[in-house]
Structure formats: C-alpha cells, structure tokens
C-alpha cells in the first residue's frame, strides 16, 4: 500500500500493486478489491446498467469470489476488456481473474498458460436470421453474408463449418456487438453468428424480436468459464471452488433465502461442510469458514443467478438446457465438497 502511494505521487495517476507471479490471494487481500476482467458490454452477461452498476451472469461470479475472499460482494473493480486485451490483462497481472465468456480451448489453456477453473455456462455457436428469408437450416446458407463478432473462437468455428459443408459465405467481422446488430438489422448481412446465448441476448434488444429466428444448428462447443493465470494454484482453487459452491448450492437446495437458516446447522453433512459449520474446508484454502456462505449469499446459488440475469423471465430468456444440474439432465456437476 505504501508503494501505491509513492508511485501515485510520482506518476500522477497511480499504480496499483499486483503480482504477475504468485500469491494473488495476498495481493487481493492487501488491496481490498478484486480486479475482475469482464466484457465491454453484453447485456445479461456483463454490462453496466443506466446507473453504471455492472450487472450480469459473469459479473455475479466475480462478486461471489470477492465475497468469498474479501467478505464484500461489492469490493470488485470491474475491468472492461476486449477480445484483444483480455489475455494480456490477465497475464500481466492487471486483473486477478477473467470472467468474460471465454471459451475453454486447448491452446488457451496450454499455449497461453492460463488455468480455466471450471465452466459457468455451456454454450455453442449459433446463427440468427430474419424470419422472412425462410431459411430453416444453416446448411442452406450458401453464399450468405455473415456478420461475426470478432475476438472469439467464432471466426474459426464458422470457417470450419462452412468448409466442412462445402458451401461459401462472405464474412463481415465487426468489433462490437452493437455495430454487428446495426449491420444485421440494416440488412448489410443476412446472418448474425455468435454464441447462442449472445444471439438470444442480442435478439432481446430488437424492436421486433419475433421477426428473427435462431437456427437449430449449434456448430461448436463453447464451454465458457472464468480463468486465472498459470502458476498460482492456490488462487485457482479459490475461484474454482467458489464456482463449484454456487453450483453445489443449487443442487443441495441452498439459496439466498434459506442460507441463514441452513447455516445454523442441518443434518446434511455436505451442506454443513460447504457452509462451514463442519470441517475446515475454508481453512485449507486460506480463507475463513464462512467463505462459501458469503459467496452464495451475495447473489444466490447458480440457479438464482441464472434466473435473475439470463433466465426465461428476463428479456434474454435463455432456457437452462445444458446448463441444468446433472440431476435434471444437464451438465452441471460439482465435485463433492469433502
């Protein structure tokens, strides 16, 4: 902290201490805030509202980690990143974790030296097209002009899809979602492609969402999850198990409404272990016993976060689908807390 003030005086704008190598946990605690990288604005996942408060599904993960580590879900400094800047921001220590609907791929994990700490949303790339064109399958898109939001794995999937189906297309890469929408609505491209969740979020903002259909083909696997730097397994554990706690909480029926009651002690030992009334799970990670309780209390369990930000009652209106608990036929499966 002293260093911070000194550099602040020296350089006018201030320098925040942070470590590129190890002990992210100590730095976060010393700083008192969590620096969390998010998108520059995708409604439902991470976007500032009219009051400038960040809201969304990815934002909730950041807040849960902040609550677990610092005891305060609002002690988060959200750093908007683009597809280009996100990895440098994480690698250089500007942010402690990245929760920016980033697809878990081999090369990012291995070559770029990041550690994906789980999956908070199972997504896949889809296509949106005006209803009036009468297209019912992506294989009928031969010769279409396709708007792509750049900076994701989208371009690669798209090229692979059209190549393997032996049909042609005209790519129009667009930097921001807002401009891609503008192009799409003006008819400058026939199809808009990005992750299916992003398509739903985009369609929700249209004047007449009913005029556009999302084609049934999902052309890629996009497991989106928070990630941290390689080389600090302790910090990775904290992010991983905070996410798992949110998922397990839904499975075990812990919600923001009944958490106080359950924290008093139940006869389900796993709930007790998560909420810290039994065992020393928190201590093993270098946190206190209540860490998961705070993480769940700040925004609710996974199901609540989903319902509040992107669920069927919101304008985005995503069904749980693959993102249901494994007990309900989905893919969410938290390893046991013991």
């Amino acid at each position: 902290m002293k260093k911070t003030v000194f550099f602040g005086a020296l350089t006018v704008a201030g320098i925040a201490a942070g470590a590129a190598s190890a002990a992210t946990l100590d730095d976060v605690k010393a700083r008192g805030t969590l620096n969390c990288g998010v998108t520059t604005g995708l409604v439902g996942f991470a976007a500032p509202d009219a009051n400038g408060e960040w809201q969304g599904f990815d934002v909730a993960v950041c807040r849960a980690v902040a609550a677990a580590v610092l005891g305060d879900g609002s002690a988060v400094e959200f750093v908007p990143t683009t597809g280009k800047t996100r990895f440098t921001a994480l690698a250089s220590g500007e942010i402690d974790m990245l929760a920016r609907n980033t697809t878990w791929t081999f090369s990012r994990d291995v070559d770029l030296k990041f550690e994906f700490t789980g999956v908070n949303y199972y997504d896949g790339q889809g296509f949106m097209i005006p209803k009036e064109l009468g297209v019912s399958s992506a294989k009928d898109l031969d010769g279409a002009t396709v708007c792509i939001q750049t900076g994701t794995t989208t371009e690669l999937n798209l090229a692979d899809f059209f190549r393997s189906n032996n049909i042609g297309y005209e790519p129009v890469p667009i930097e921001t979602n807002a401009e891609a929408q503008q192009q799409y609505l003006a008819g400058a491209c026939d199809v808009y492609t990005t992750d299916a969740s992003g398509l739903a979020a985009t369609r929700a903002t249209f004047e007449a969402p009913g005029d556009h259909v999302i084609l049934p083909e999902i052309i890629s696997k996009e497991p989106l999850g928070p990630l941290v730097r390689h080389g600090d397994p302790e910090w990775g554990d904290i992010v991983r198990w905070t996410l798992n706690a949110l998922i397990a909480a839904e499975e075990l029926g812990i919600s923001s409404t009944n958490i106080e009651e359950l924290a008093a002690g139940t006869n389900n030992p796993e709930i007790n272990r998560i909420l810290g009334t039994e065992g020393t799970l928190g201590e093993m990670m270098g946190l206190d016993a209540d860490w998961a309780k705070r993480a769940i209390a700040v925004g609710g369990n996974y199901g609540e976060i989903f319902a509040k930000n992107i669920g069927e009652s919101t304008p985005i209106g995503l069904a749980r689908g693959l993102n249901a608990q494994w007990t309900e036929g989905g893919l969410l499966y938290s390893p046991p807390f013991r």
Binding site: A19, A89, G93
Partner: peptide, 18 residues
Amino acid sequence: SVMLAYFFPPDSTVDLFL
C-alpha cells in the same frame, strides 16, 4: 494496451490510463 504491461517491474502494474 497489450504490450507495455510486460515492460514494467513484475510486482507492479500501471493502469491503462497511465
């Protein structure tokens, strides 16, 4: 935005504005 951060000492990061 993507390179300069690597040229500062490892234990400090300078914010984007600076």
